[in-house]
Design a protein around this nucleic acid. Structure first.
Lengths: 252, 252
DNA sequence: GCGGATCATTGCTTTAGATTATTGAACGGC
DNA sequence: GCCGTTCAATAATCTAAAGCAATGATCCGC
């Protein structure tokens, strides 16, 4: 979090790491991205970053920390739409829609790099791959939501929990925040309950069930997968590979 | 569905109608889109257009008809991810991911215009607004999914059904397939049940409840909203306005 | 005009999971 | 070192919605 002269340190940024998996970025393009970064934003744990119903014309590239997108219903219930991990973008709907339709709150201290949406759009006009990359990432986000719909719609509670753990693990792995078959859960059971549309006691029971069936072991929040195949089958989980973005010039 | 010489009739295409709401399209750009259209694809009612797990490197712009994205679970349950209406794009994840992670099936006869994903990407390099438009639409799709997550996660069955009806009505209005407070439901209660994660009898009962509370009236599949405000409140529904895509040239 | 398919409606039983409440453990600040 | 907060664990009751089953209604082709 120390200021780095002449650069926002994008080269080691988890967002760039994810972009690089989609399209090979030339130095000039990276420079273009670096140029539009306004600076760094740090939000403390338990604080809201984006408020439901407000305009938010910034893009935030999460460097470190965890957050959730959520929506509060009038009856007091909270549904967490999804979790945000390093490498994710925050602020898309607030920029594309006239106002955000959910809130974002930091679960841990959260460190991000920010730019204005207009600056990013102009970057897309200069380097169209950034616009395409945005589509790719939005599609990826849509895919995560889609799985989430299946979770809460048709999966049983154990299946949901398993699926959540597997997917989170995969996302953390992509940005080097998880080991091969073990990771540290950044979220409380209350958060998980609101992600999965369950009650806290039930999440707890499902954790116990997974432990009882020797599918996972956990000491505090350190989760270890004991039988990867079995839990993947249980969760109907299938890892998805993103196809790369074609470069310019190939005949249409 | 008759062949139109020299043009795919894109000017009156609901997809173009939606694009035009996002960004003003110049003649040359429209021509560019028209040029990459391979032709027309008609899929008959009850047939699959995309199969779960297969590669699908095409984009289909729905001209007429209705379809659903769905996923079959091993336990025989089906979750419908969302419904597809005229003006929607089919095929994004199949193009962006290495394989599609869901199936698409036609509910009514379905008429679409098709192009290859590579051709579209090349179009984006020539006219970056198409790439941006794709992001916008993907974000819109993500937003629909997000609401769907809230539906199945935290809304009560009546709320879900109300929300579904309202959202569908709004989407149909955007492409002139619905009147101000009335529309024809293109889907059976079985389809709706699989969208909302409910059983068919329960969907039926919830319809009755809405009728009983004088929120809607329906004769067969023609739905009429009797008290728009009340049902919107019940459903926690808030219409969302998409911000337009900025044109090139404004200072970043 | 008949017969099959599709879809809507209704009743009954059963159970999964919410709700509520309480205890216990771990952590962090002063 | 103590106290307050936060989170995990566990038990009891109760209700909402699933599951199952059967009947009507409507539309279609022949």
């Amino acid at each position: 979090m120390r200021a780095q002269p002449q650069s926002n340190g994008l080269d080691r940024h988890p967002f760039v790491a994810r972009l690089s998996q989609l399209v090979e970025l030339k130095t000039a393009e990276l420079k273009g991205l670096d140029d539009i970064i306004d600076g760094e934003l740090v939000i403390r744990k338990r604080r809201d970053l984006v408020a439901d119903g407000y305009e938010y014309r910034k893009l935030c590239f999460v460097k470190d920390g965890y957050a959730v997108r959520y929506k509060l219903l009038r009856n007091g219930k909270r549904q967490i739409l999804n979790v945000i991990v390093p490498g994710d973008i925050v602020g898309l709907p607030g920029s594309f829609y006239e106002r955000s339709f959910y809130s974002v709150t930091a679960i841990t201290d959260l460190c991000m790099n920010v730019c204005g949406i207009d600056a990013y759009v102009q970057l897309c006009y200069r380097h169209p791959q950034f616009g395409l990359a945005l589509s790719w990432m939005a599609v990826q986000e849509a895919a995560t939501y889609a799985e989430h719909v299946i979770d809460v719609g048709r999966r049983t509670p154990v299946e949901r929990l398993s699926h959540f753990l597997l997917e989170l693990h995969a996302r953390l792995r992509a940005v080097e925040r998880a080991e091969k078959e073990r990771f540290t859960l950044p979220f409380s059971q209350e958060v998980i309950a609101d992600v999965l549309g369950l009650s806290v006691p039930h999440v707890n029971r499902m954790m116990q069930q997974l432990r009882g069936e020797k599918l996972i072991a956990n000491r505090d929040r350190v989760i270890e997968f004991l039988d990867f195949d079995a839990i993947q089958t249980l969760a109907h989980y299938q890892p998805q590979a993103l196809a790369p973005i074609p470069r310019e010039g190939r005949p249409g």
